Simulated assay, not measured.
Amino acid sequence: MTETESEISAVIVIDMISTYDHEDAEQLLPAARKALPAVVRLLERARERDVPVIYANDNFGQWRSHHGEILEAALAGPHADLVEPIRPDDKSLFVVKARHSIFYETPLSYLLSQLGVGHVVLCGQLTEQCVLYSALDAHIRHLRVTVPVDAVAHIHADLAQAALRMMERNMAAELRTAETARL
Results as ranks from 00 to 15, higher is better:
Tyr20Lys: 05
Tyr20Glu: 10
Asp21Pro: 01
Asp21Phe: 06
Asp21Tyr: 08
His22Met: 08
His22Lys: 07
His22Trp: 13
Glu23Ser: 12
Glu23Ala: 14
Asp24Trp: 13
Asp24Gly: 07
Asp24Tyr: 15
Glu26Ile: 00
Glu26Lys: 09
Gln27Met: 11
Gln27Gly: 07
Gln27Cys: 08
Leu28Gln: 06
Leu28Ala: 09
Leu28Val: 12
Pro30Lys: 01
Ala31Phe: 07
Lys34Gln: 14
Ala35Thr: 06
Ala35Glu: 00
Ala35His: 00
Ala35Ser: 07
Leu36Met: 05
Leu36Ile: 07
Pro37Thr: 11
Val39His: 00
Val39Ile: 15
Leu43Pro: 00
Leu43His: 01
Leu43Cys: 07
Glu44Ala: 11
Arg45Met: 10
Arg45Glu: 10
Arg45Thr: 02
Glu48Gln: 10
Glu48Gly: 09
Glu48His: 11
Arg49Leu: 15
Asp50Tyr: 06
Asp50Cys: 08
Asp50Met: 06
Val53Ala: 05
Ile54Phe: 01
Tyr55Met: 02
Ala56Met: 08
Ala56Ser: 15
Asn57Pro: 09
Asp58Thr: 03
Asp58Glu: 15
Asn59Val: 10
Phe60His: 09
Gln62Cys: 09
Gln62Pro: 00
Trp63Asn: 15
Trp63Arg: 15
Arg64Pro: 12
Ser65Leu: 05
Ser65His: 11
His66Leu: 10
His66Ser: 13
His67Ile: 05
His67Asn: 11
Gly68Pro: 10
Gly68Glu: 09
Ile70Met: 10
Leu71Trp: 06
Glu72Tyr: 10
Glu72Thr: 15
Glu72Met: 08
Glu72Gly: 12
Glu72Pro: 07
Ala73Phe: 05
Ala73Lys: 15
Ala73Trp: 11
Ala74Arg: 01
Leu75Met: 13
Leu75Thr: 03
Ala76Glu: 15
Ala76Val: 03
Pro78Val: 07
Pro78Thr: 10
Pro78Trp: 05
Ala80Ile: 03
Ala80Phe: 05
Leu82Ser: 02
Glu84Ile: 05
Glu84Asp: 13
Pro85Ala: 10
Ile86Asp: 00
Pro88Met: 04
Pro88Gln: 03
Asp89Lys: 03
Asp89Gly: 08
Asp90Thr: 09
Asp90His: 14
Lys91Ser: 12
Ser92Ile: 01
Leu93Ile: 11
Leu93Arg: 11
Phe94Gly: 03
Phe94Lys: 03
Phe94Asp: 03
Phe94Met: 07
Val95Ile: 12
Val95Tyr: 00
Val95Asn: 03
Val95Ser: 03
Val96Arg: 05
Ala98Cys: 14
Arg99Asp: 09
Arg99Lys: 10
Ser101Lys: 04
Ile102Trp: 00
Ile102Leu: 05
Phe103Thr: 02
Phe103Met: 04
Tyr104Ser: 14
Tyr104Ala: 12
Tyr104Thr: 10
Glu105Met: 11
Glu105Leu: 11
Leu108Asn: 01
Leu108Glu: 00
Tyr110Glu: 14
Leu111His: 02
Leu111Glu: 01
Leu112Pro: 06
Ser113Val: 08
Ser113Leu: 11
Ser113Gln: 13
Ser113Arg: 12
Gln114Ser: 14
Gly116Trp: 02
Gly118Ile: 03
Gly118Leu: 02
Gly118Phe: 02
Gly118Tyr: 01
His119Lys: 14
His119Ile: 01
